[in-house]
């Protein structure tokens, strides 16, 4: 990047002459290095899936979850620095609990908005760095299923299908082919598993764990991990599809 060593990237509180904040762009780089996280919003629910790269064979399977539960009906997947993501999740829980205390069960939008405000505040001061993490936050509230993505810059947009991390471009391509208004939540689980397996680059990383959570009719409108039997089936079908594909 030609902007390096110009001095405009030393602080999140400094613009470059052409109006960019480099620290925020570097934060996006941190997100791009991480395993892919996707979420699909369909007519009656939301499905999350994450490609969790296993950094060491010594790790206990299931450690370092990258999909977190925010409230009964809200969940969050993270791409980027896990530690930053966990901090954002903790903050999202606080916001959700605060909104619940004042107004009853919070909408996904209100929590995503507040999380956006929080992330944005970390782009204003020289004493802090922006979050190296994108938070995909979704759930099912009184208005139905909802899905948002909060980026390091603090923007929070709503999506039908969201993707962040290494394989986001390919994943977005695949997501665009889905018919969100026709899929059931159960079908979306298979699609999500397929996309994560497809996006995973065997040549670069050896090992990864698939992590999936969902909310919808079948989960009783609670945000929970996808049940074991469905998970195993979706995982297997995704592997099979990939082998036929090659």
């Amino acid at each position: 990047m030609s902007s390096i060593a110009t001095g405009y990237d030393l602080s999140a509180s400094t613009y470059s002459p052409d109006g960019r904040v480099f620290q925020v762009e570097y934060a996006n780089k941190a997100v791009e290095n991480s395993g892919t996280a996707i979420a699909i919003r369909v007519k009656d629910g939301v499905v999350f899936a994450v490609e969790k790269v296993v950094t060491s064979k010594l790790l206990v399977p299931g450690a370092n979850r990258r999909i977190q539960i925010i409230d009964r009906h809200i969940g969050m997947a993270m791409a980027g620095f896990l530690a930053d993501g966990r901090h954002l999740a903790a903050r999202a829980r606080d916001e959700a609990s605060n909104l619940r205390e004042l107004y009853g069960p919070p909408t996904i939008r209100s929590v995503a908005d507040r999380l956006g405000l929080y992330a944005q505040a970390y782009t204003l001061y020289s004493s802090v760095r922006p979050f190296g993490c994108s938070a995909i936050i979704g759930g099912y509230d009184k208005d139905g299923p909802a899905l948002y993505c909060v980026e390091p810059s603090g923007v929070s947009y709503g999506y039908n299908g969201a993707a962040a991390g290494k394989g986001r471009t390919l994943a977005k391509n695949e997501l665009e082919k889905l018919k969100f208004s026709e899929l059931s939540t159960r079908e979306a689980v298979y699609e999500a598993a397929r996309i994560i397996h497809l996006v995973h680059d065997d040549a670069k990383e050896k090992d990864f764990e698939l992590e999936m959570s969902w909310i919808g009719q079948e989960s009783n409108f609670r945000f929970v991990p996808v049940p074991d039997d469905l998970f195993k089936d979706a995982d297997q079908k995704a592997r099979d599809a990939l082998e036929n594909f090659d």
């Binding site: 977190q68 539960i69 925010i70 409230d71 009964r72 829980r93 609990s97 619940r100 205390e101 609670r222 929970v224 991990p225």
Partner: peptide
């Protein structure tokens, strides 16, 4: 009831 509901979300639901 409300405070136990909050407790439950903190200690049971989100921890999972």
């Amino acid at each position: 009831q409300t405070s136990l509901d909050t407790l439950l979300i903190e200690e049971e639901i989100t921890q999972n």
